[in-house]
Amino acid sequence: MWDVFAVSTYFTVSLIFWYVGLIPDLATLRDRARKRFPRFAYGILAMGWRGSAIHWHRYEMAYLLLAGLATPLVVSVHTVVSFDFAVALVPGWHSTIFPPYFVAGAIYSGFAMVLTLAIPLRKVYSLEDFITLRHLRNMGEVMLATGLIVAYGYVMETFMAWYSGNLYEQYMMMNRMFGPYAYMYWVLILFNLLVPQALWIRGVRTNVPALFAIAICVNIGMWLERYVIVVVSLSRDFMPSAWGMYSGTIWDYAVLAGSIGLFLALMFLFIRILPMISIFEMRELVHEATVKSE
């Protein structure tokens, strides 16, 4: 039940935050549109925004508060998702480290995903002046920091399995590392733990292809992490009679591919009809920069 509230709140608040951020830009698009239908459609969505100083004043306050409300949601939604595992008794799930470790993992893979998407877009649409190398480097640093928290989570899971003295936990860990799914675990360690250590080197953080490659590794690594957590623990439950092997069928992978395809389709539509980068914020920034340089 927690999930329903956490995930739907997260979705709704993200949608509100996104839409509120778009309203002034929709007004710009409406005023620039020359054809009847785009003008009408953007006009409806912009809701008659006219850039009034009083409106802007309220807008900035509301936008600030929404940002403040959305931030703790990131923590809460991933915490609640991890509770789904942590409150179960299955070995490898029943662990108090899950909430912080899932939150860090979410930020880690989130930044990796942003890099995965931003690097090609920046190249194709020549956005190097807007998404600068400094942005990419900072994202690399965040990935390194959150990646280390995730690494700490992996190490602690292993340590606690041994230190707890619990037979089932110990067996789960041995099975995870050396059982039939061991190759997944070691690829996960390689992609999530070892490869990102290259980010310690400044030259790697400012090398765009290298950052892209690391981001892809982290994306795959985080997918493997969920696979390992869900599948390995369930495949060797408390009772040997419930043991079994799982491997995705073609339809499982078709659903995975379909979800990626749906995401990409929606993203390309978004790029086509809405601004990729907030227009009004960029104008504000450019204006401040010119005032400063004068």
Partner: peptide, 28 residues
């Protein structure tokens, strides 16, 4: 957890609709 989620949800909805209502938007 649910109390927290609903606090944030209703506050965010109030922020959106409060903003629109005070600004008298949508205004065709």
């Amino acid at each position: 957890p649910v109390t927290f989620e609903l606090t944030v949800l209703i506050a965010a909805l109030f922020a959106l609709f409060g903003l629109l209502a005070l600004n008298r938007l949508p205004m065709p």
